[in-house]
Design a protein around this nucleic acid. Structure first.
Lengths: 200, 200
DNA sequence: ACACAAACGCACTGATCGCTGCGATTAAAA
DNA sequence: TTTTAATCGCAGCGATCAGTGCGTTTGTGT
């Protein structure tokens, strides 16, 4: 697991041939995972699917674990806009709904499961770190407005945890509507920026 | 993935030679996972660790996925006593604390991650089905006493989801104390068997 | 235009994996 | 004790995988 060193060298040239190969390999991994290929997810197979020589994949990523971590990182970073509806409730509802829609995609789900499987704690962190940071940013922004907000851990337990659990562990698809009910349970029903919700 | 057919034939003779080989192979899988072997978790390697010929493993389980599902099933079934403290709050607190302690074990965690990784939705179901059934049993027993209980989904979101999420996705170990706070958030603080908690 | 460094493709080698007939061993039934 | 069915060990097959020098191509800086 030395993804940092090799991966950082990989995306140093965004427009060159490296980027083309990189996106082709990433797409191949996503395609194979979408087809249910999990235990036979090997480097020669990925390279063949991407019309790239296996040597290249060995040199740039080294192992399937590093490659999966790289794919997951680029998949879970960017393209996700932190909402700014003006109210904390609105922000959280929008964010939870977006995350539910994102995690509801079977292909994304397969990527998450595979990354966890071979990447262990490292891989799992890649799949949730960005989302957790964004959620903390929403809370911090609301608190900077002078309003009381739930604790970070409490928010994670009430929002992120059910979303990821339902997506990864069960066969039920997390819907945006259900995600909004999670926010309703977290925040008191009365005021929008009201107090309460703080633990203990 | 045809674990049902081959695995059911495996535990038909509980005391014979089959059982000895079975437990040896299971232990080998747990040992390898505890050592961090995830992507090289192959049948010949498992067989060598268990001092069993690879042929036997191929015949009885067929694939690593089936074997992992079998190990996870026997790991997550039995040995877990559904508490009966007399009150719903006490039962849930005890159960959440036990589950936190169980999921806090690194070896168990590695098994869960690997099973999810190669088993996909099937493997994930194996790791949570038993626990979810036990949780529903606690709720059902309380309801049969004539008391109001939270909805099953709400309870899963408030207890099971945070426990599994923190264990699998983060680097923080779920403690029994923290697990009890989840129950405090789910149930109203006033009465023990009081109403409320029911969604919408 | 030229030189230079990095990335890529090619042709290999050794090792491992998945899998299968075949005979030996075991444990339970008759 | 004899029978019998199931499980297990053994040797070996083809296929695939991980990894490595070497030459070629691509992109960039001078």
């Amino acid at each position: 697991m030395s993804a940092a060193t090799s991966a950082s060298r990989a995306d140093s040239r965004p427009g060159g041939r490296s980027a083309r190969v990189r996106s082709a390999v990433h797409q191949a991994v996503r395609d194979l995972l979408a087809d249910g290929t999990t235990d036979q997810l090997t480097i020669p197979l990925i390279a063949a699917r991407a019309d790239v020589h296996a040597t290249t994949v060995y040199r740039r990523w080294g192992s399937v674990g590093d490659l999966l971590a790289d794919v997951a990182t680029s998949r879970f970073s960017g393209g996700f806009v932190v909402p700014d509806t003006g109210s904390l409730r609105g922000d959280l509802e929008r964010y939870a709904a977006d995350l539910a829609k994102d995690l509801g995609d079977p292909d994304t789900l397969a990527l998450v499961r595979a990354t966890i499987g071979v990447g262990g704690e490292q891989g799992a962190a890649v799949c949730r770190k960005e989302r957790q940071d964004q959620l903390e940013a929403i809370l911090e922004r609301e608190r900077s407005r002078g309003n009381e907000v739930p604790e970070v851990d409490r928010t994670i337990d009430a929002l992120l945890a059910p979303l990821y659990y339902r997506a990864v562990f069960t066969d039920r698809v997390p819907t945006p509507e259900w995600a909004r009910t999670l926010v309703a349970h977290l925040l008191p029903e009365a005021a929008d920026a009201g107090p309460g919700g703080t633990t203990t």
